[in-house]
């Protein structure tokens, strides 16, 4: 196959993905309050965003929560996938079933049942309850992604490793983890995305001590979607892109 066709296709899909984002960035500089018609260039929404302490704090809370939830769910999810793939134990079907139930449960059902559970066992609503809930709903996404990768994996490798005297842990660390790395990355990214975006579950399991961004954004639409939200989206986008470029730069320097 020629080289330009895949490239053109990739470019096209990226364009489609970024068009709505472009609109959002554009409208974040819109002077008009309605957020719908164009009223000239302005930075007023950025200004009012930075004056909104609660909003900025919620943003940091959200980022921290998403980072930790994605990481914990990747670790547990990968271990679950490895266990399902390699170990023989009773109740495998049940384990699979539970993951399926999480995926299928409507958010509101998950939200209320988790809140009821936290209240029953006396977990304070705040960062911990949010983390437990987020990791739980991210988990199946990681497990399924990692399982898909493992199912194409050559079974003789771990056996060879064990024959050479490697312990289970060593074998996992040196043979399996490198193999499932792309899936771990994919799973982590999915988890981070899901956590950053969740509203319904967070509404119920968060307390006043720890508010996160999506909650503010969702209820903000009641008084009309304010252009501050666009400004916020733009900042988040710029932040992610800068981090991305930075990591690329560091990587390329460390290689040299």
């Amino acid at each position: 196959m020629s080289r330009w066709l895949p490239r053109a296709y990739l470019t096209l899909v990226y364009l489609l993905l970024y068009v709505p984002i472009g609109i959002l960035v554009l409208f974040s500089f819109n002077d008009s309050r309605s957020g719908y018609t164009w009223g000239g260039l302005s930075l007023r929404w950025y200004q009012s965003l930075f004056n909104n302490n609660a909003m900025v704090e919620a943003m940091w809370n959200s980022l921290w929560l998403a980072l930790s939830a994605a990481t914990v769910s990747t670790v547990i999810g990968a271990l679950t996938a490895l266990a399902l793939h390699r170990y023989r134990f009773r109740g495998k079907k049940m384990l699979n079933g539970m993951l399926f139930v999480v995926m299928m449960s409507p958010e509101i059902v998950l939200a209320i049942s988790l809140l009821a559970l936290f209240l029953l066992v006396g977990i304070q609503l705040g960062y911990v309850s949010l983390l437990l809930a987020h990791v739980t709903f991210c988990l199946p996404f990681v497990v399924i992604t990692v399982m898909a990768r493992l199912s194409g994996f050559d079974e003789r490798l771990p056996e060879a490793a064990r024959d050479l005297g490697a312990s289970d842990f060593t074998m996992t660390r040196t043979v399996l983890i490198p193999v499932i790395m792309p899936a771990l990355l994919a799973g982590w990214l999915l988890g981070f995305t899901l956590s950053l975006d969740d509203v319904v579950v967070s509404t119920f399991v968060s307390g006043p001590s720890y508010e996160i961004l999506p909650l503010r954004i969702y209820s903000m639409v009641r008084v009309g979607l304010k252009p501050e939200v666009n400004a916020l989206g733009t900042l988040l986008l710029v932040f992610s892109l800068v981090m991305l470029m930075l990591s690329q730069w560091i990587l390329s320097r460390s290689k040299r």
């Binding site: 209320i112 119920f204 001590s209 909650l215 503010r216």
Partner: peptide, 18 residues
């Protein structure tokens, strides 16, 4: 400390459950 909700229904359910 300003915490938010997006519907009366959600606010009610949460206050009631808590």
């Amino acid at each position: 400390v300003y915490t938010t909700y997006d519907s009366n229904e959600a606010m009610y359910a949460k206050l009631k459950l808590l």
